[in-house]
Design a protein around this nucleic acid. Structure first.
Length: 267
DNA sequence: ATGGCTTGAGTGTCAAGA
């Protein structure tokens, strides 16, 4: 079983690239973030034609998550329970579509687009921290009911120094601040494993590069897209890689896909 | 140099991302 995540930064713009990538990689599950379309505009037909079921939770202009799968998704949940998901400023009082949980082929798949946080100390940073707290509560509950759990997506957190091209430059800044990294480590303390680090990886492996200043060509990136697995699922994980191919494409997303391969034991 | 790109909104120019 192959499970992947990709922040596409607009599914309208990236649809041909995603369909091409599905054809080449043939994942069993692909979680998308920043689709930026309402549910009526989600291109479900195009994905059906490529052989995928789709569940999605979108809104106009911002955010939006979708989960594509070879087999149908069950028990779909499209929000953080008990969390009023409205990001400051008050001018944008629209519920944020940032989470999509579903059960696919016996695996509980939680697709997340964690808030950016804008700047340490800002209202959006406080919103990010409260969102992370609500997610931690959900994951603790999901772990109790689903031994095979994967939580993947755009975390907007670089957890370790080697996940940042220049740790001194990023020290204390949003995406690499102590409180964000502590929240990530609390997920690990729940029993979730960052499967990318289970395997030997190239030096300076990143999943996002700024569009500006030739960030990709100079490899000035961050590893902020992650695949976290429960212990039972982590034991079945055989590989995890970042696919930088799509980042070289014309009109690329600023994020690259992250892919994990599993050899699922009989349950 | 608080710049530098990209997208979506909507038709002039700004918010938001990371």
């Amino acid at each position: 079983m192959k499970i992947a995540t990709w922040n596409v930064n607009s599914i309208r713009v990236r649809l041909p690239q995603v369909v091409e990538w599905l054809g080449r990689e043939s994942p069993d599950v692909l979680c998308l973030q920043e689709t930026k379309v309402t549910d009526g505009d989600f291109p479900a037909e195009a994905f059906r034609g490529a052989g995928y079921h789709a569940v999605f939770a979108g809104q106009k202009t911002y955010n939006g998550v979708a989960t594509l799968s070879r087999t149908p998704a069950d028990a779909v949940v499209a929000s953080l329970p008990g969390f009023d998901d409205v990001q400051p400023p008050s001018g944008a009082q629209v519920p944020q579509k940032r989470l999509l949980a579903a059960t696919i082929a016996g695996v509980r798949v939680v697709n997340v687009y964690i808030p950016n946080g804008e700047e340490v100390g800002s209202e959006k940073y406080a919103y990010k921290l409260s969102w992370l707290e609500a997610l931690e509560k959900l994951l603790a509950a999901e772990l109790r009911s689903h031994p095979k759990l994967v939580v993947l997506g755009d975390y907007n957190i670089a957890p370790e120094e080697n996940d940042v091209h220049d740790p001194k430059l990023w020290q204390g800044r949003v995406l690499f601040s102590d409180k964000e990294r502590a929240a990530f480590h609390r997920f690990v303390q729940l029993g979730l494993v960052d499967v990318f680090r289970k395997f030997e990886q190239p030096e300076k492996s990143f999943s996002w590069w700024d569009y500006r200043m030739n960030g990709f060509k100079r490899n000035l990136g961050l590893r902020i897209d992650h695949i976290l697995c429960s212990a039972a699922l982590s034991a079945d994980c055989r590989a995890c890689q970042i696919d930088t191919g799509p980042r070289r494409h014309e009109r690329p997303s600023d994020h690259a896909p992250v892919v994990a391969r599993f050899e699922l034991s009989v349950s």
